[in-house]
Write a protein that binds this DNA or RNA. Sequence first.
DNA 1: CGGCGCATTGAACTTATTCAAACGATGTGG
DNA 2: CCACATCGTTTGAATAAGTTCAATGCGCCG
Lengths: 253, 253
Amino acid sequence: MLAMPSALSSALSSELPSESGTHPIEAAQRCSSCALRNICLPEGLDTADYALLESVICTSKRVQRGEALYKNGDAFSNIYVVRVGSFKTVVNHPDGREQVTRFDITGESLGLDGVYANQHSCDAIALEDSTVCIISFERLEALCSQIKLMQRHVHRLMSGEIVRTAGQMMLLGNMRADERVAAFLLNISARMKSRGYSATEFNLRMSRAELASYLGMKLETVSRMFSRFQKDKLINTHGRAVRILDMDGLGSV
Amino acid sequence: MLAMPSALSSALSSELPSESGTHPIEAAQRCSSCALRNICLPEGLDTADYALLESVICTSKRVQRGEALYKNGDAFSNIYVVRVGSFKTVVNHPDGREQVTRFDITGESLGLDGVYANQHSCDAIALEDSTVCIISFERLEALCSQIKLMQRHVHRLMSGEIVRTAGQMMLLGNMRADERVAAFLLNISARMKSRGYSATEFNLRMSRAELASYLGMKLETVSRMFSRFQKDKLINTHGRAVRILDMDGLGSV
DNA sequence: CGGCGCATTGAACTTATTCAAACGATGTGG
DNA sequence: CCACATCGTTTGAATAAGTTCAATGCGCCG
């Protein structure tokens, strides 16, 4: 039997400012003292920079499992950083088909798709009860004009998304079903590890159907790959609980 | 028989500043008088802004068919705008597999992948003899701090790439072979039209293999789809020459 | 004219999908 | 507390879609 930690969010939550009450929008948080500042802010900011930073007024907001943080067509004014929880991003085809394009966890940013047309072009849906920081993009841009490090940080953020999606296109265009699932597991593992969680044991937050959409295949195929990897002693799985047994083995299909 | 214009570049070339000689790097060009300024610069700049703009010192460079504008691992310092010609962008998997992630034509920008890690993460290869504007990203960032319109323009540029790749992920993850090829043809058609070329008659600049890679399939499958569309009277094709006969038909597979 | 590089076409094969059924955990009501 | 409905997951068998391998065709250039 596996004893899986609620890895995506529970371990960190104690470090975060306590948030009580039921209002969806919480009081402003100080970025300068946030546990995530090393993830979502550039390094090297001085005290004066942090003072300017507070002007961005990063409020936070709770989003319940299944709720949308924003939807395709919504006016764009903010970007978001995941504080607690996780999200999927979905693009909708006119004919009703859906494609999951991202999964985002603690410290990752959402919403930059909205800059282009000044409205969002996809839906961001919470995979579990989650909390995000709200950052006014207009104020962020103003800040970028003043703090060079911040400007570069925002540019790196956007460029990073471009690089990441290029990798996803390689996955979707060139890799077999087993390779896709293996690559996904290794990717999640690395992101967990970089946040201080176990690289080998975690609970997935998304359904097989959502994962299948993200990987460009059908949910049955994903399920078969999980079963095969288990038979081959690469992983243990039980539903959404995953334990990686052979990292190298996963790396070579 | 089809009489295909060399649509990707020839019609516009007469508007562009004449460039003689064989040196790969040409003298600086004035953005303020460039035929492409409406494509690659924001609207609403005033005379003072244009004066500042010249400081970016947009030199131009010729790249021969098959040559790399930059390669994976190259140090990042510039972004590029296609003046004449066209490029493919290729990401390389460690095991040797390649994925074409973009095709860029006149007025489109290249190189923003390099911002993230300060080095390029893919190869940009000329599909034909081409000319690009070279823009120092460092100077561009400095300019962004001074000209708000410019900052927003750069942000829109990057966000636009994010939106575009989301669409490509939908294509790769959800669409059938015939739908992918049809979507590609309509996409090229729209880009041609927006540049003043025929929306229905053009020459593709890439091989079947390159197109197949971009669309996440094999070159034989692409060829079969072209043949089928021709049989179904949706297009006429002869090698890389394409004439669209039924735009609506292509739109509904 | 002959050779080379793409592109096209055919036929066998492989992979992933589709459809269908069963399973297992969870939660509800009798 | 157990029966039962529900939702997501797993598994199997038949099918469809795209790939692979191989041969042929076509235009271009020396």
